[in-house]
Design a protein around this nucleic acid. Sequence first.
DNA 1: TACAATATCCCCACTTTTGGTGATATTTTT
DNA 2: AAAAATATCACCAAAAGTGGGGATATTGTA
Lengths: 215, 215
Amino acid sequence: MPLRIAIFDDNKNIRESIAMLLQTEKDFEVVGSFAHVLDCLEDVTQCSPDVILMDIEMPGMTGIEAVKIIKHELPDVLILMQTVFEDDDNVFDSICAGASGYILKNFLNTKLIDAIKELEFGGSPMSPSIARKVLTKMQQIPQHVSNMPAPDYKLTAREKEVLACVVNGLSYKMIGDQLFIGYETVRSHIKHIYEKLHVASLTEVVHKAMKEGIV
Amino acid sequence: MPLRIAIFDDNKNIRESIAMLLQTEKDFEVVGSFAHVLDCLEDVTQCSPDVILMDIEMPGMTGIEAVKIIKHELPDVLILMQTVFEDDDNVFDSICAGASGYILKNFLNTKLIDAIKELEFGGSPMSPSIARKVLTKMQQIPQHVSNMPAPDYKLTAREKEVLACVVNGLSYKMIGDQLFIGYETVRSHIKHIYEKLHVASLTEVVHKAMKEGIV
DNA sequence: TACAATATCCCCACTTTTGGTGATATTTTT
DNA sequence: AAAAATATCACCAAAAGTGGGGATATTGTA
């Protein structure tokens, strides 16, 4: 079964030359080719590709927006971004939007086929310099969000529920309503949370819970 | 001027074969070779390498710990991790510790030279599957920490100071003492913060400030 | 079975926070 | 120079949270 590929690029020449290039691989099948992303969801749903080649610079809607939309509905398609520039913002926005690879247009003809195969194989093709940028970015991210496991304060399931409510800014009364328990019960749980977290106010609870990723 | 390389690996055979391999490149110079990382800081300071090849599995101290220590003192050295496994935790821990590349021991002989050159060129060599892991990880990270700039709520400098105190769990009274202003002044600032952030309680303030990276 | 932990609820007294409505002096902007 | 924003402080009443005691029923564990 061939790998189904869809192309989004506003330049007709590029679309056609990409399609031509991809057809040299007999495992690849170009199932769609679109000049804009305004109807990207329909387009993609219709041709159901395994891999999407998405241009970042697109008229009407940016390719990054399209990635978000498509990934939201179809989380399993792999999206390879193509662009002329590799400025930080576009790279990171694409990644956060859900792209799985990043290829520069200059190297399309020499590296596209390999990049797509890499994608298929579970890899993420990207230029070395982009990889560096990504790593550098990750290193700037606070520990707990990137990797540190949430410390275990031995909160019970119920206490965790209450904690989640507290973090979301609910008052005791609102928490009671939310969890179908009385005001005093909420208080009781929160007293226990205070003890276990070694804090003495709601603000500290929220701070600690968010900082350490308990919620 | 050749590229200075240091090797950390507890296996003598591997150290020597790596050194031999690297010496085939005339632009490379192996300036140090160490069996453990207990004195890594001294070792590295002494031989002042441009690139460090670090084994993850090391006796006494883990290679990841060593990376942290070295990077803290010498942020400019490039560190290439080498390992037999590519399990998530090690990969991410290494990255967070400050590694700039990640190579599997299986491919040392075929890819090490290229990997080091890539490092030198400002890239980050890593296997495609590791790259995918990294991207997937980044996509799970909340917007603001990864890329989104903190939204501007037009808080004044003073309000931001008060906000910081609130987030750190201080009470009105404590904030007043901290900033050398009266209780009522603190209240006044917080009222304004409530308006500007569209919230109505301290917990919401802490939550919003932390979630959106205002602090 | 006895014990420990959990989830639920109650009361009292006290502290803190909140909403509303001010005021004054200083700084910044227009 | 006038207007707007900022930083400072004040008072009152109502609402919410906190600390330190309890109690009871259920569930899980030794």
